[in-house]
Amino acid sequence: MERVKKVFVLVHVVLWTLFILLSALQLSQDGAHWQTLTTGFILTCLLVFYGNFYLLTNYSGKKNRRAYYLRLALIISIGAFPFMIFHYRALETWQTFIGFYGVTLITIVPLFTFLGWLARITENLVLNTIKKEQLEKQAVEAELHYLKSQINPHFLFNTLNNIHTLVYKQAPAAPEAVLGLSSLMRYMIYESNAPTVPLSREMSYLQDYVSLQQLRYKKAPVVDLEIEGDTESCHIAPLLFIHLLENAYKHSPARLEPGSIKVSVEIKENTLTFRVQNPISNNPGNALEEPGGIGLTNVRKRLALLYQDQHELEISSTGETFIVTLKIYGLHIQAHERKAHLLYN
């Protein structure tokens, strides 16, 4: 906001400098008195322009209308005096003074009163627009912060339950699980604070999560994770896919065959496609919600805030298999725009 105000000050200085130069050039054709004429003319313009400009600044609102109009009438009435004082003929006789005063009062004074009003209204419009955008941005950031904060306890609750089971059984994999959780929490607490992260880092996070969950199964990896495309050049909002993967585990049968859960990530022509497929549990107590707790609701809200009109979220079920497909468009372009925005601010 302060930067915008400084820009307005610079605009005022530049425009008034140009106006003074043009006025001096025009009035220099009137002979030897052009310096005093120019001085009086500019002082009258400045007095009327900034008089109304600052009245609108300090006496805005219905309660201050009377004070504003009284002070504006005073400025208008005395606005012509600087030009009269510096005019080489205005003070010759009373009739001459009245004549010049009347001409100035109906030409120069109304024009610069209007220009002062126009400048104040324009600046207010720009500043209010910027302030509104900042408030909307803060509201979005607060909403995103709230949604992201939901991830941590939800994920931590599930993972601690898994580790508790390993520790209770005194499984040799328990220390490895603790280290894996530490790595995941480090990413969630520190690295995920950025607006975007490299897609490759987000994929590493998901792979760590899969490795931690795999400790529950004795068979070969139950998750088949395929990544296709350049994940280094893409940036994505952090912690966007974790709920989709959590739901796949949550709503799958307790016993999973190798490769039962299929996860694919494809980057093609500036489009990211994230797809999760899992078998549906036959246990009524584990019946599929739409499609499970706060998970997908959280994802929907974050997508609406972060990738409005740039994503598609499709959910389908065959009765035996549950499939979630997320597509995000213009990912390369958006990463560039976010970087430029951060540099600007």
Rank of each mutant, 00 (worst) to 15 (best):
S252P: 03
R275M: 13
S252T: 07
T271E: 15
I261M: 01
G259S: 08
I261V: 10
E257I: 08
K268S: 14
G259E: 14
L272I: 07
I280K: 02
T271S: 08
A254G: 12
R255W: 09
S260W: 05
T273K: 03
N278A: 10
L256Y: 03
E257D: 14
P258D: 12
V276I: 05
H251K: 02
S264H: 05
V265F: 10
P253F: 11
S252M: 07
V263Y: 00
R255A: 15
N270G: 06
T271L: 07
F274M: 07
N278F: 12
N270Y: 05
N270A: 15
H251I: 08
K262I: 12
N278Q: 11
N278R: 06
Q277D: 15
G259P: 06
I261E: 00
S264L: 05
P258N: 08
H251V: 03
L256R: 03
G259I: 11
L272Q: 03
T273P: 05
L272S: 03
V265Y: 03
I261L: 04
L272Y: 00
G259F: 14
V263A: 02
P253A: 09
S252F: 08
E257S: 11
R275T: 14
K268Q: 14
I267F: 09
R275E: 14
P258I: 11
E266Q: 12
I280A: 01
T273R: 04
V265D: 00
I280T: 08
V265K: 01
N270C: 07
I280Y: 04
S260D: 15
K262Y: 09
I267N: 00
F274S: 01
N278P: 03
I261W: 01
N278K: 05
E266D: 11
P253E: 09
I267Q: 00
Q277N: 13
N278G: 08
R275W: 09
K262W: 09
T273N: 05
N270L: 06
V265A: 04
R275H: 12
R255C: 06
R255G: 06
A254P: 00
K262F: 11
P258F: 13
E269P: 01
G259D: 13
T273D: 07
I267C: 02
K262R: 14
I280N: 02
V276G: 00
S260E: 14
A254E: 15
K268H: 12
Q277H: 07
P279H: 10
P258T: 10
I267E: 04
S260G: 12
K268I: 12
A254S: 14
F274I: 08
L256T: 05
R275F: 08
I261G: 00
V265Q: 01
E266H: 07
R255Y: 13
F274A: 08
K268F: 13
N278T: 09
G259W: 13
F274C: 06
N278E: 11
H251F: 13
